Computed example of a mutant assay.
Amino acid sequence: MTSTVSVKGVSKRYGGKVDALRELSFTLDEGETVALVGHNGAGKTTLIKLLLGLIRPTSGEVRVLGEDPAKGDFGVRRALGYLPESVSFHMALTGRETLSFYARLKRVDVKCADELFERVGLAISAADRPIRTYSKGMRQRLGLAQALLGAPKVLFLDEPTSGLDPALRRNFYTLIDELRAGGTTILLSSHALGELEDRAGRVIIVNRGSQIADGTIDDLRRIASLPSRIRVRPVSGGRPGLLRDTGVRWTEAGDGSLETEVAHAERLPLIHRLSDAASGIDTLTMIEPTLDDLYAHFLNSQEAA
């Protein structure tokens, strides 16, 4: 796997007093979708600015496509795409004029504009309307189209689904999957943790400028060892005797189901025992810790340390 982004021991201090980032180290690979998670002020935006070359690290090394992004190599900048959290365009320009302007800046063919409008779900009929007539969601989609100009090899997205309705969010993640399959590296910063859970192959959690977790969802669940919940619905009129096993406490879930919390290492043994009572169980569901749960766990662990 070819690495496209490398961050080694990076720290960023403002005014000699404020440590925005502390000793971050990670790499991003081709065809990888990585979620960057952290509350406001955790250092996410500072990190993205470093990767874009807008600011320089106080210490450490940043490489994007093998180069220092702060040196302004045009070939590297052309291969990057960026969607900021708050997109801002000239309201008097049309969508087409805006995309053409950014295409010229990036020195890519302006003829790709119509394809990009369609790709991000903006009607061609809206392309020649002033941006002042656009809704927030439409401006967000135009921002995404701008970020996709020139088929970037590395894409940085900051709160990309802000202002999008559920259907457009699904379309957005379908597009992200297509880009990833084509080899694009995607770093996606978002507070919508529920959206990221099944869509990011890896999660990097930052807090107070420090990197406190890095791995797949399964990796983080294994490290955190948070309990899972197992829910069973007995067959109508029955209750498996195995549910009364010593050491497993079941509680009513309110819909006729029974639920228990089980330690990470005990999940499979319990499911194995429940399989012996399968004739008395209508449905069985295992509910794993969510990304919200994992995020809270790692933050609390850092605070306790």
Rank of each mutant, 00 (worst) to 15 (best):
R141T: 00
K136R: 07
G143F: 00
A147N: 08
E178M: 03
V232F: 06
T161Y: 09
G237S: 08
G182K: 15
T184G: 13
L168K: 14
V154G: 08
S228V: 11
V232I: 14
L220C: 05
G237N: 09
D128I: 05
A224T: 03
L179W: 10
A151I: 09
L148W: 07
A147L: 07
S162E: 09
Q140M: 01
P160C: 05
R202H: 04
A126E: 05
T161Q: 11
G238A: 15
V206I: 15
R169K: 15
Q211N: 07
Q211H: 06
P227S: 03
S162I: 08
L187I: 14
S189I: 13
I223S: 14
I186T: 07
R169F: 10
Q140C: 00
V203W: 13
S228C: 13
D198A: 15
I204M: 13
R208S: 15
E197S: 09
E178I: 01
S225T: 08
G238V: 12
L144G: 00
T185R: 05
H191C: 07
S236K: 13
Q146Y: 09
R239F: 13
Q211R: 12
R229H: 12
A145S: 02
H191P: 02
L144M: 05
P152Q: 07
D198P: 07
R129K: 14
I186L: 12
D214Q: 10
K153L: 03
T184R: 08
A181R: 15
V206P: 04
A126M: 07
L164F: 05
R141Y: 00
N207V: 04
E159W: 13
S135W: 00
A147S: 15
H191I: 12
I176H: 06
Q211A: 05
T174C: 11
P227L: 08
D218V: 09
R169Y: 11
R129D: 02
P227I: 06
P160L: 01
R231S: 11
L187C: 14
A126R: 08
A224I: 02
L188H: 05
Q211C: 10
G137Y: 00
Q146P: 07
D128W: 02
L149P: 13
L220G: 02
S225L: 09
L175Y: 01
S190R: 10
S190F: 08
L196Q: 08
K153H: 03
S228W: 12
G215Y: 03
A126G: 01
Q146G: 08
A151P: 10
S190C: 07
P130T: 01
I212E: 06
L193N: 09
P227F: 09
S210C: 13
P160K: 02
D219K: 10
L164S: 08
D219M: 09
G238T: 15
L148P: 03
I186M: 06
E178G: 03
I186G: 07
L164P: 07
I212S: 02
D177M: 04
A200R: 03
